[in-house]
Design a protein around this nucleic acid. Sequence first.
RNA 1: UCCGGUGUGGCGCAAUGGUAGCGCAAUCGGCUGUUAACCGAUGUGUUAGAGGUUCGAGUCCUCUCACCGGAGCCA
Length: 458
Amino acid sequence: MTRTKIKDLIHGEEREVLVKGWVKTRRDSKGGFSFLQINDGSCFADIQVVAEHSRYASVEKQVTTGSCVSVRGKLVASEGKGQSREIQAAEIHVYGSSPVDYPLQKKRHSFEFLREIAHLRPRTNTFGAVMRVRNRLAFSIHRFFQARGFIYLNTPIVTTSDCEGAGKMFQVTTMDMSNPPRVNGEIDFSRDFFGEKTFLTVSGQLEGEIYAMALAEIYTFGPTFRAENSNTSRHLSEFWMVEPEMAFYDLDEDMDLAEKFIKFLLSDVMEHCAEDMEFFNTRIDTTILATMKNIIDNQFERLTYTDAIHQLQKSPEAFTYPVEWGSALQAEHERYLSEKVFKKPIIVFNYPEPIKPFYMKLNDGGETVLAMDVLLPNLGEIIGGSQREENYEMLLQRMRDKNLNPEEYWWYLDLRKFGSAPHSGFGLGFERLVQFVTGMGNIRDVIPFPRTPKHAKF
RNA sequence: UCCGGUGUGGCGCAAUGGUAGCGCAAUCGGCUGUUAACCGAUGUGUUAGAGGUUCGAGUCCUCUCACCGGAGCCA
């Protein structure tokens, strides 16, 4: 008999079934039977198994919280409340029992504790739901871009290029750190594996632009590494980033795409993960469904950086950081605008040139660049993007102004030399998206194995 | 990295400088078509680590480590 997933029988017709999964709880009745809650990860719900003692007396001691079992029996309408179907067990086989020191006993556990047992936490309700939603979002990202003819591009993970301004990098080396080869006292990287200094990527954008200048519309979706000593609930050292890059898009079209993208992802996950979302709305954040609906139904507020500064300056709010044209918007400023003034996602664009990287296109006048940030209430920045500078001379000048060596970016400049085109793109932090959708407070709880400063366990 | 906080049975938390307790979980028993089950009994500790003050330190002081919240950096 073949196994049926719980998802496929939870509302199914009466029949003989075989399920396999892990025991969440067991409630014994002295009426001569036990109730087992079995979960196999296929959906949020458990299936209740009613097991007559006579049917499983030989393995009864092994059927404990956390154990893995297979159950053959009849799927029937449940006599009890709380579920429509249950299985009357005919036969129970124990794949692996679970001793009393199983850490996930049937009680509440803090997320901090669960992080210490990252190998077992996927068996909890919350992490099962988080990972199903994460999976659906990843799939939705591909659906969104594939439907529009974007090409999925894999940019390199090991790189020599520093996407300027994107943060400190992890160095990659095979050299003996206790005794590296040296020339004149300096470490000789020409004898390292790649013959030069290499790093883990902090962004696939520059390489993405290469392929956008041939395939027109591409997107990357891959791991990204930042060696910043960031200790917050919104930062990871290793995270996943989505970076579309589009030839012939100006900043307006870039913002249009970003807005459509977010809305599509939210409605897709609400449609396909309804049960998991219901759980988040009940147990994690009671406003999450209303918030998502609000975002899907309303236009994002678009305002220039200059307008944002005006809004902040005329506000009665007492900010810790001063508001003045030319300095970066602080988290408190962004929160005020998205949570208090507009109460919905906002897109701030046209930032002052000095606070943004060299590759962003200058506006007429040269004061500002065609950059945009999508800011979500309660989360902050989820997308950062820009129209790229496509003029060779302008780009060269900006690199010099920012003390970058044009020789190191020769191929990036070549794109402007040979068949240059206006183009735009943005980056979306995948875990921040999952965090926003699930309402989870800490980004370490929306990725299977979080990497943060001082922590690379599991 | 900065500011603030926390670190005590498996987990969540108490304890004026003076005998370390409670809840959950677990184990055993009772009861029950149960479902955050219920009732009773039982066991559970180098109080994060190192040093110091004191007759006496979970509590006060110094340092280290870890974690949490906020900030910065960003996605």
